[in-house]
């Protein structure tokens, strides 16, 4: 699924040695940086943080939708949802692999998630209370993710950019299936329509917040833009999302829960009411409705599976020993 990123960048890329000049020259020519290339330590650290947060978001992001796999209302819907959540596991795996090319093993990144040191996208700390939430997540959350991620297919770090190409293709399918669920519900029975509206009411603002704090409060844009690991600002991406999504809600016949929403003829963009940034920071700090449950579920899966991983390792050791002896 997705992540909103780039909080906390360490250091900067000043300095003038030859390797650094070569690195900057590659950036200037929009060439990719590859794992074997020299890179500033701060660039490496920032990327590990960004890529691992993104990977964690995919893995934790399996939970809200996974919550409805066993209850999907038709076999067709169940297959699509299951395949979608499976894609997210796949995205997590490519991203951890991209992170590993920077020298940090997957287990280390996962341990940082479990200890609370690493973050994941805050959107997944909201609950999926009804089937329509699965539609709303596909439509809004994956829709926002695509807007965030398409520029990353052009980011400077080769393995990350290439992973994003494949991920974006799958995300675009996810977004369409979410919209299609919403469409079916919005045009279904009265109860189904109400379910769709309720899901939009609950997921709209958290989705708008997915792009991160406003540019005026976002401190790391400049360095990340220089490094070409962030190509647009939070507010630019957010505006794109809103402009894209409002007409879609009209097609669905659903109401965006914002009485101040209006089209501005002069700017040719929608304007929205105030975002509740207090809520945003509260959820990031751990007091969202599901922070504790989401993380605990991942920790439980990891701890309950420890004996399986140990057994697989031990079996591999025994086999190697036997083949040596043979």
């Amino acid at each position: 699924m997705y992540t909103s990123i780039s909080d906390g960048i360490d250091g900067n890329a000043n300095g003038g040695d030859e390797r650094e000049q070569a690195f900057n020259a590659r950036l200037d020519r929009a060439m990719k940086i590859e794992p074997s290339d020299w890179m500033p330590e701060a660039y490496r650290k920032t990327l590990v943080r960004q890529i691992s947060q993104h990977a964690h978001s995919e893995i934790v992001g399996m939970l809200p939708e996974g919550n409805w796999i066993t209850r999907a209302p038709s076999l067709h819907r169940k297959l699509i949802l299951l395949a979608k959540v499976q894609d997210e596991a796949g995205h997590g795996l490519y991203l951890y692999s991209a992170g590993e090319t920077l020298g940090t093993p997957r287990d280390e990144m996962v341990a940082a998630l479990h200890s609370g040191k690493a973050k994941y996208s805050s959107i997944f700390n909201y609950p999926t209370l009804a089937w329509a939430d699965v539609g709303a997540i596909g439509w809004l959350v994956d829709g926002a993710a695509i807007i965030n991620q398409i520029p990353l297919t052009r980011c400077s770090y080769g393995p990350y950019a290439r992973a994003m190409v494949r991920i974006c293709k799958e995300e675009s399918f996810h977004q369409r299936q979410g919209f299609e669920i919403m469409w079916t519900l919005a045009h279904g029975t009265t109860a189904q329509h109400a379910m769709a509206q309720d899901a939009l009411d609950r997921w709209w603002w958290p989705s708008v917040m997915m792009f991160g704090p406003p540019d005026s409060e976002s401190t790391h844009n400049e360095q990340s833009q220089r490094w070409r690991i962030k190509l647009f600002t939070n507010d630019e991406l957010r505006r794109k999302f809103i402009d894209q999504t409002v007409p879609q809600s009209e097609k669905l016949g659903l109401r965006i829960p914002d009485p101040q929403l209006r089209w501005n003829e002069r700017t040719q963009h929608y304007e929205i009411g105030p975002i509740d940034w207090e809520e945003f920071y509260r959820v990031i700090k751990g007091d969202g409705p599901c922070n504790k449950d989401r993380l605990q579920t991942r920790i439980d899966a990891w701890e309950d599976g420890a004996w399986v991983r140990e057994a697989a390792t031990e079996h591999a050791r025994k086999r190697a020993e036997r083949s040596d002896a043979a």
């Binding site: 399996m62 996974g66 299951l82 959540v85 796949g90 795996l93 439980d300 899966a301 599976g305 991983r309």
Partner: peptide, 16 residues
């Protein structure tokens, strides 16, 4: 029901 709860991420994919 195993998906997202498997002992190894590769097994989330396989069980799915």
């Amino acid at each position: 029901a195993w998906v997202a709860h498997a002992p190894i991420m590769e097994e989330d994919v396989a069980l799915a």
